[in-house]
Every structure is written in structure tokens, then in C-alpha cells.
Amino acid sequence: MSSGGPGPRRVWLPRASLLLLLLTIVLTSGPARAHEFRPALLRLTERPNPSGENGSFDLRLVAPAQSTAGAIGEGELTPIVPAHCELRQIRLDCGAQGLVGELGVAGLDRHPVDVIVELRFVDGTQITSVLGPDQPTMTVDGATEQAGSDSVFSDYVALGIEHILLGPDHLLFVLGLVLLVRAAGSDTRTLVWTVTAFTLAHSITLAAATLQLVQVPGPPVEAGIALSILLLARELARGQTDETARDTWSWRYPWVVAFGFGLLHGFGFAGALSEVGLPQGQIPLALLGFNVGVELGQLAVVAVLLVVLLGARALARAAQLRPKIARLGTLAPTWVMGALAFAWTIDRVLGFWG
């Protein structure tokens, strides 16, 4: 009788712990939404004046719903305009002196987000710049020269890097790809090609949606992204516990799976980029810069993950962990990944009716 008691406990304790982990993540991660990357937009469009004395602008400031510091309330991000200009709601009058002086956004110290600034003049030229918490203002000297190609490209590269680093579902999906390729015993080249396939697909649908060639509703896309992570976690869990379950496309051709799901992920943040817009006349360059930034960010994340995985493996060997404990450590990231994806999927599906 006594020998049979511990057996059921050993079976049920891990299951109960996993159930508790799932419940905790579901209760605490409900507000999570896809693609936390949300730049703000400050756009000034010069109003034509028949007398030829321009100096009046339509001003539009679009703030994201939240930043890494939390929800952004109304009035927490406000425009900074030159001292001689007068701002009346969405109308900025700068008189004969014109738009000269400091221009930017106040409140970035409390809510650290990037701000895409677009100045559009009546002669068709445009100035494009990117501000942030470290540089909340820019100096306008009255010139109406279009932003240089180097500036636009570098600004959007930075935005692409920021997107991947602040996008929780992207990071989780990249983690799943790393775990899948490493568990399959593939080399680093396969991993790089897999991540690059994800970026390529991501770029195709991002460009198509941003250029309004394809329009897909946002909520179903966000739910689909969460579901894609859940399916990847399920595939990982099956393959990690049963090697006979690895005879699938996901294990044999991870780059194909990355490309397929990458098409879906590309739609996920295209809406955010469309809201703030792209510099007219330099849209292809801005999209290229953004996607280069995403690829650089992903490769940096992959490099860090590989170092962490190698360090954890070396630490486990040095500590001489029992096989069962080491096995639990291998499965834990997959469980957490699946639990988060499950919570996001339920939350976003319920959001269809919210």
C-alpha cells in the first residue's frame, strides 16, 4: 500500500504545477496585445495662402495607446512649438516669421516612445525626422529641403530594431524558432536562414498592407499571431517528449514554417506603421530601412538566446543535475511559451466582442 502512494503524487504534482502556471499567466497577461511597437506621429501640413504669405499649419499629433510605462492618457503627450507660434487646437499660426525654432513633443520622459515628425510644405517638399526620449525636440531653421536618404534610412532602421525588441509576440516566436532548430540538431546556418525566412515573409505582408494593396482586419490577425505561437509551442512540446513526433514539416523544414507564419506576423504591425505614415517620395527606402532594422534586431536576439542556452547547458553540466531536473529545465521554456500564447489567444478572441 505504502509503495503505491508516491506514484500518483509524482504524476499529479507536475501537472498541477503546470496548471497553476497556466492559470497565473492567463490572469496576469490578459491586457497584453500584439506588437507593443507604436510610434507617435507629429505631422504639420502647411496651409496654402493666396496672398503668398504662408506660416499657417494644420497640426496633427497621434499618440499610441500605451508605452512601456503604461497607458497614455489624453493630454500626456503634447506638441512643443516655437515660442512665436500660436497653437489653437489643430491650427498652428507662426506668422511672417514662419516655422522656425524648437519643435517636438512633451511628455516623452514619462512615456518613452519614438515620434515620427513630418513637415509638409505647400511647395511639395517635406522634412522627416524621428524624435525620442533622449531627443524630444528638433530645430527647424526654415529650410524646406527634403530629408536626406541617409537620415530616412537610418531613422527607420532604428524603428525596426525597436519594434522587434518591444514586440513580445515576435520575441516569443523567435525564441520558439531557436528552440526548434537547436532541438532538431541543426547548425547555426539553418537557424540564420530560418530567421531570415521569417523576416522576408514579414516584409512582404508589411509592404503590401502599408501600401494598402491588401487589407486585413486587425483583431483576427492578432489572434492568429497568438495561435501561431501556441501551435509552435505544441510542436516543440511533442518533439521534445517523443522523438517519433519529429517527422513533420516543422522539424524537417523549419524555414518553411517560419516563412508561413511570418506572412501572418507581417500584418500584425503594419497597421501601426500605416497610422503614422511613411515619408512621401521615400516610402520604399523607409520600408527597406525598417525591415533591415527588424532583421538586425532579430539576429541580435538570436545571438543572445544562443549564449543563454549554451550558458544554461554548461551550468547544468557543472551542477551535475539529475536527468529529470535537467529535462524539466529543457521543457520549462516551451511550457511558458505555450501558456503565454494560450492566454493571448483567449484574450484576443474574446476581444472580438469587446
Rank of each mutant, 00 (worst) to 15 (best):
G7P: 07
R15P: 01
R15Q: 12
A16P: 04
L19G: 14
V26Y: 09
S29E: 04
R33L: 10
F37Q: 07
R38H: 13
A40H: 06
E46A: 08
R47V: 15
R47Y: 01
N49G: 05
P50Q: 01
N54I: 10
F57M: 13
D58F: 08
L59G: 02
P64I: 00
I72S: 04
G73N: 05
E74F: 13
E76K: 12
L77Q: 07
P79H: 02
I80C: 11
P82S: 02
A83G: 10
R91A: 06
D93G: 02
L103A: 09
V105H: 10
R110C: 12
V115M: 12
V115H: 09
I116F: 10
I116W: 01
E118V: 03
G124W: 03
Q126D: 15
I127A: 09
T128H: 03
L131Y: 04
G132Q: 06
P133R: 11
Q135V: 11
T137P: 04
V140D: 05
V140P: 01
D141S: 08
D141C: 05
D141Y: 05
G142C: 07
S149M: 14
S151K: 06
F153A: 09
F153W: 10
I161D: 03
L166F: 13
G167I: 12
P168Q: 03
D169A: 12
D169N: 12
F173M: 10
V178G: 06
R182A: 09
R189M: 10
L191A: 00
T196M: 05
T199L: 03
T199A: 03
H202N: 06
H202Y: 03
I204L: 14
T205W: 11
A207F: 14
T210L: 14
L211D: 09
L213S: 09
Q215C: 07
P219Q: 05
P219F: 04
P220K: 00
A223I: 03
I225C: 05
I229D: 02
I229A: 12
L230R: 00
E235V: 13
R238C: 08
R238V: 01
G239Y: 02
G239L: 07
R246L: 01
T248N: 05
T248M: 00
W249I: 10
Y253W: 15
P254T: 07
S274A: 15
V276R: 07
P279F: 06
Q282T: 01
A286R: 00
V294C: 13
V294S: 11
G297I: 01
Q298M: 06
V304H: 03
L306D: 05
V307P: 05
R317A: 14
A319D: 00
Q320S: 11
Q320E: 15
R322I: 13
P323S: 08
T334W: 04
G338H: 03
L340V: 13
L340A: 09
A343R: 04
W344M: 12
I346M: 12
V349L: 13
V349W: 09
V349C: 08
L350I: 12
